[in-house]
Each structure stands twice: as C-alpha cells, then as structure tokens.
Design a protein around this nucleic acid. Structure first.
Length: 258
DNA sequence: ATGGTAGCGCTGCTA
C-alpha cells in the first residue's frame, strides 16, 4: 500500500501537475494540503477519471485538505471531533478510512512568528490533534497521520539551523508538540528508513532556495507501530518540485507491506 | 543584500 502526502499550494493551479504525478507515482492514497478551494470547486471528477475516490474539506482562499484513495474511502470526518461551527474553524484536518487504515490529512498552522497569537494557536492546534488521537484512536490500530506539519523535527531536517534560530518551525515548543504525537504512538516513517541530513520537502519560492538546497523537511508521514513496522520504502520526490509551476513542497511517498 | 516569489483577488494578506 503506497501512501503519499503533498502540499499542492492551490489545487486550481496545480491540478495538471497532480494528475500527471498520480499517473506515474500511482499512490493508493494521496493526502493533499493547501488546496485553497471551496468544496464546490474541488475537481472530484478529474480524480475519479484516474480511479480515485476523494474527500475534500475546504473553505476557499486558504487552507483546504483532501484525501484521494483507489482502495476505498469510508468514514470521512472533517475537522476535530466535537468542534462547533461557531469556532470558525479553518479547514486543516480530514480523516478517512482507506482499506482498513485510518488516514488523516493535516495542515498545521504556520505560526508566523514566535510570541504571536498565531504561534500559540499552532501549538494549541498540535495539542488538540494529540488530544483527538487519545480520545478517538487506538495506538494499536493502523493509523497514519500525513501532511504539512510546518515543523522540522530535528536540526538534520533544516538546511542551516543557525539561520532559522529564533524563528518558527524549529523552536523547542513546536518540536515538543510533534514529539508528543510520537509519544502517543506515531513514528516518523521517513526517519525509520533514512538518517541522511540535507533531505527536505519544502523550499521557499524566494531567492532560489530550491536550487541552492535551502529547505526544510516539514512534510511527514507519521504511523502507528502496526503500520510503521511494515514500511519498506520512502521517497521525497524532488522531481515534482521542478518544471513549470511547481508547488513549493515536494510530495512524500511511503510504501507499506500490507 | 533585513531582500526575494507565488497565490488569491483586487488591496494587502498569507506563506
């Protein structure tokens, strides 16, 4: 079973690239983030033509998450359970069950700057995700949480930690919030397989960062032991970050022997 | 060099 995650940074702009990528990467499940679409504008027909069922949770303009599957798509749930409409929730979390695996597509808030309300909201969002795992999932079952975490878990996931010191994505509280997911029972599948530094999934569009190798590994596939023990291969597909109109993120693929 | 690009949508915000 091949599971992938990709922050596409506008599905409207990226659809041709996503369709092309699906045709050669052939994931069984694809989690997308930052579709920037309302549900009514989601191109479900384009994906069904390629053999994928889909679920989307979007508000338009910003955020927006999706799950595509060609191995079944059941029990779809948008947002945090127990979330009320008056919270004005942003579309950052979507659950679905695909061939018996509980899959989440997550887009963690950016945080902007330390010491801001946005940064505190990011930490609170990650804490709420941990809380939802505790109340809604069994760590002994097959659970995979995929997405753009906007956190680089360790210094080896950052092109130059000294350049980002004091900024978001690498601060100890953010890393602790991700570690708390690990403590619940999720492991960073890419890191089970590769120890290399200098492997990134996001590069700023500005200043030629991609071509200069200045990136961060912030897109993660986190899996419970029942899944992680079966992970056999992982790849961050840098090829998809090249060419015309690329996203600023590359997709991450993981193969599980299921 | 305190910059730079991309997307949304039409002015400046978000990343």
């Amino acid at each position: 079973m091949r599971i992938a995650t990709w922050n596409v940074n506008s599905l409207k702009v990226r659809l041709p690239k996503v369709e092309e990528w699906l045709a050669y990467a052939r994931p069984d499940v694809l989690c997308m983030q930052e579709t920037k679409l309302a549900d009514g504008a989601f191109p479900a027909l384009a994906f069904s033509a390629l053999g994928y069922e889909s679920a989307h949770y979007g508000e338009g303009r910003w955020n927006g998450v999706a799950v595509l599957s060609r191995v079944g798509l059941d029990d779809v749930a948008a947002g945090f359970s127990g979330q009320t409409a008056d919270e004005g929730a942003e579309a950052r979390l979507l659950w679905a069950t695909c061939a018996g695996v509980r899959v989440a597509s997550v887009y963690v808030p950016n945080g902007r700057q330390l010491g801001t309300e946005h940064y505190e909201a990011k930490l609170a969002w990650l804490a709420r995700l941990r809380q939802q795992l505790e109340t809604g999932c069994d760590p002994a079952s097959q659970v995979v949480v995929c997405g753009d975490f906007n956190v680089a878990p360790e210094d080896r996931d950052v092109w130059d930690p000294s350049k980002l010191h004091g900024g978001t994505h690498i601060s100890p509280p953010e890393r602790e919030a991700v570690a708390a997911l690990r403590d619940w029972g999720l492991s960073d599948v890419f890191r089970q397989i590769y120890a290399d530094s200098g492997v990134y999934s996001w590069w700023d569009y500005r200043a030629g960062d991609f071509h200069q190798g200045r990136g961060l590994r912030i897109d993660l596939v986190l899996a419970t032991k029942a899944m992680a023990d079966r992970a056999s291969w992982a790849l961050i597909d840098r090829q998809a970050r090249k060419g015309k109109l690329p996203s600023d993120h590359a997709p991450l693929l993981v193969d599980f022997d299921l």
